[in-house]
Design a protein around this nucleic acid. Structure first.
Lengths: 197, 197
DNA sequence: TTCCAATTGGTACTCGGTACCATAAGGGAC
DNA sequence: GTCCCTTATGGTACCGAGTACCAATTGGAA
């Protein structure tokens, strides 16, 4: 395997150092008490450079997560069943993706817990989380439509998945290990709804 | 009925004029091209005063909506069935509230359409919408718990309602009249999910 | 009228975010 | 190696959102 170019490596290192510096400072002082200038100084880059790597201060909190979504979406684009999916089939598909996403959270538990705490304490970070989720839902909807699902199904199934995810997250609190089972349980309860609820 | 005090009337008038000025300017120039100073000048108040009535620039876009939620929540606190609600009963209750909320959107169609356009064009306003929805869900969850629902049911039912709302909104586009039927249809499909989906 | 509380608008400040510019450094062609 | 082009960097200067503070005005009640 060929090494990435020196440029690319430097770039990656700078990015990682900014994230590292940011999380350390957030852990020490809290989100509001850390300025972008502080992060840049700790990471030994200019303030301008910070904004070249991250569109805004919030983005550094969620660094990397967008990649997960894109990965998952790309991976899922190839998985198709037979014929256009109805709501049940669509739900089963987004369920898979959602649970895969939950599993990622346990990869770096320490950072996960800190991030959950930051989000809980700062409404604007919760807002930003919601933006990511919207994007996830839209991507899923797009894929479902490509697979022949109706507009209604494509819109509803991903939103239901998000509902199960959010509800599961609320039940699990910030315990990374509890996340996946809680979300799975929510999906299960969805399947047990009696007709004409 | 006694008239509210002169102070209260002036206060209400100032607030209304700020909202009016803001919406007019947003319609003319778009959200980004209007500064808080512009709004304040048009409304003939000081910039400082703007921030006394609205916590930030985004808040003026959603002025009044929070009142709806509080109203509805208060109203719903008194509606109780017999015994602790299961998921189906909880879902039926939040369904009522959600549809009532949709109906409000048709009260001022012009402003509704403009607001939807602003939200669609500006991600940060979409984020803020999500914040309101989170708060709605949390309030509903609280009420459900008061009525004896389990933590899981209380967390899941409001999120499912939000899912139906969001999906319905996506299908309806910015047509106020289409909103309620679309959302209702989403709820209906939820009741038709076969067991062990 | 007098006094208190509420409201106002101005000034000055911090911080997030952007535009612009001169400089440095990587990477390829020769 | 050296030339040249592209990319990345950091600094300066600017704008707008949001906050703290203060002096002046105004509503309301004694």
């Amino acid at each position: 395997m060929t090494q990435p170019s020196l440029r690319a490596r430097k770039r990656q290192r700078a990015r990682d150092e900014i994230i590292e510096a940011a999380y350390r400072l957030f852990a020490e002082r809290g989100y509001d008490e850390v300025t972008v200038a502080d992060i840049a100084e700790r990471a030994e880059v200019g303030r301008t450079t910070f904004f070249r790597y991250f569109g805004d201060k919030q983005e550094v909190v969620f660094a990397g997560e967008q990649d997960w979504l894109d990965d998952l979406a790309a991976h899922h684009r190839n998985l198709r069943g037979d014929g256009p999916p109805g709501l049940s089939e669509a739900l089963a598909q987004v369920r898979e993706l959602t649970l895969a996403l939950c599993a990622r959270a346990t990869l770096d538990p320490g950072r996960h817990v800190l991030r959950e705490r930051l989000i809980a304490d700062h409404p604007e970070l919760g807002d930003r989380t919601a933006r990511k989720q919207r994007r996830f839902a839209e991507t899923m909807a797009e894929i479902l439509r490509e697979h022949g699902a109706s507009a209604e199904t494509a819109a509803l199934a991903p939103q239901l998945a998000l509902a199960c995810y959010t509800a599961g997250r609320a039940v699990a609190g910030d315990d990374p290990a509890a996340l996946t089972p809680s979300v799975a349980a929510a999906f299960d309860r969805l399947g047990l709804l009696p007709p004409t609820a």
